[in-house]
Amino acid sequence: MDQELNMRFMEIAMKHVQEGRAFLNEKGIELDMHDLQPALEMLMSVMNEAYNMGYDDAKKE
């Protein structure tokens, strides 16, 4: 994965972490940043795959 793109995805993810933590806390699930790391990595993979899918679609047009 491109390092610059990875950093941009991380910035987006971090912008929404508090919202995600609040949602989980409302459900009675408490997570610290160490626990959130695997979820953030999965989110980064999803964002990268979606980006590549959009990029490939744009190349076709």
Rank of each mutant, 00 (worst) to 15 (best):
E49D: 13
V46Q: 13
F23P: 02
V17L: 07
G28E: 02
M33L: 15
M47D: 05
S45V: 06
Y55A: 12
V17E: 02
M7S: 13
L40S: 02
E41R: 09
D2C: 05
M53P: 04
F9A: 01
H16P: 01
M44H: 11
K59Q: 12
N52H: 07
P38M: 01
A13Y: 06
A50H: 08
E19V: 11
D2K: 13
K60Q: 11
A58K: 13
M7F: 06
E4M: 12
Q37G: 03
E19C: 01
N6P: 08
M14S: 09
V46D: 13
E49P: 03
M47P: 03
A58D: 10
E61H: 07
E4S: 14
E19R: 08
S45G: 09
E61A: 12
F23N: 05
A58G: 09
E19P: 03
K15A: 14
I29P: 02
A39H: 07
M7C: 05
H16T: 01
L43G: 13
D56M: 08
E4K: 15
K27M: 10
M42P: 02
E61D: 13
E61T: 09
A39W: 05
E49G: 04
D32I: 02
V17Q: 01
Q18M: 08
M47N: 04
D32V: 07
E61Q: 11
E19F: 04
Y51Q: 01
N25C: 06
A22F: 14
M33V: 13
E41C: 02
N52P: 03
Q37F: 04
A13H: 02
A58E: 14
R21K: 08
L24C: 03
E26V: 02
M47S: 04
N48K: 13
P38L: 02
M44F: 10
D56A: 09
H34A: 10
R8G: 09
E30D: 09
N52R: 08
K59E: 12
Y51F: 15
M42K: 15
R21G: 00
F9R: 00
Q18P: 06
K15S: 15
D57E: 04
E11R: 14
Y55P: 01
E19H: 00
R8W: 09
L5N: 03
I12S: 10
M33E: 15
G20E: 00
L40H: 04
G28N: 00
R8V: 10
M42H: 15
L40P: 00
I12R: 10
Q3Y: 14
I12A: 14
E30S: 08
A22P: 02
L40V: 10
A50Q: 09
R21Y: 01
V46C: 11
D35Y: 04
